[in-house]
Amino acid sequence: MSGYQVGLNSFGSKPADFPHQREGHLDHLTWYNSRPALQFFGFDDPVNCDALIGDEIRITVHDDHVCSSCGGDVDPDRDVCWDCADSPLMTPCIWNPGTECSWSDCPYPEYKRDACAHTFVVYLVAKDSVKVGITRADRRQARWAEQGATHAAIIGECHNRKVAGIVEMCLAEEYPSKADSSWYIPVDDPVETLVEAAAEAGECFPDRLAGCYTLDGLSTAEIRERVVSVPDRSTRVNDEIVAGTSELSRGDRQRGHVVGVRGSVIATESFTFNAKLHAGTRVTLETTGDLAVPEEDSNT
């Protein structure tokens, strides 16, 4: 169904230079099925970002917002609602499991069972430099795309979130783990940079967790085969120019032609829109393109 595609003319105000519009509280930019799509709270269908590329858009970032985590009502001076603020997801033990998680004394046994007591992978990604991260093994593809990495490689497999967090912490001395989500200029030769880092990373694993390193004894060529390229839509983008443009903030309205999408960022030739910064905020997206998500491939 496409009831959200309201022609602006129906409001009788503006000329129809943007025939399609979506207005709602932004959730996040997903890369489900390797396709970038903007999700809004309360809408079943996300906005297909592929259809925006090459088209002109106008984005308005309004002042009001809902809970950035669940889309529920929230006091104007808060980012997240009460329900979400104290959920396990918002606690330091999830952000910094290596130092903050008290695994055997976990205050959230059920959450631990559902979300932490699984195989976690430690990975390196190439962005403007090499960064380290962890994620649940089955979430990795989406995670890398949402982070906006160009390439990624798994370097460790760990018993649970905390073990992975410890390895991440040890690697963070070499490779930063908290990445900025803005548009960036990719590192030169990301694949070789990643291969080199991945080959050396075993040194940083604590001795007792050395067995978690998955590249031990592999040749450079074998490691190179394990580097995956992460889906993005930035081949037509001049990174130097886009990284130098301004990011939309609250209260801003700008128009431009979409040149690419990477991670949480939609790039135009004159500004970028970083969805991650506006989770929960009411956003109006107007476009000359089509908003619909294409039918899913039958083979996926």
Binding site: G98, W103, S104, C158, H159, A210, G211
Partner: peptide, 20 residues
């Protein structure tokens, strides 16, 4: 921290076999 993180992991999984 490592002791804590491995506290509920079955033994065979933590031995130093390099195939954790």
């Amino acid at each position: 921290h490592i002791d804590d993180a491995l506290s509920e992991v079955p033994d065979p999984a933590t031995t130093q076999t390099r195939h954790a």
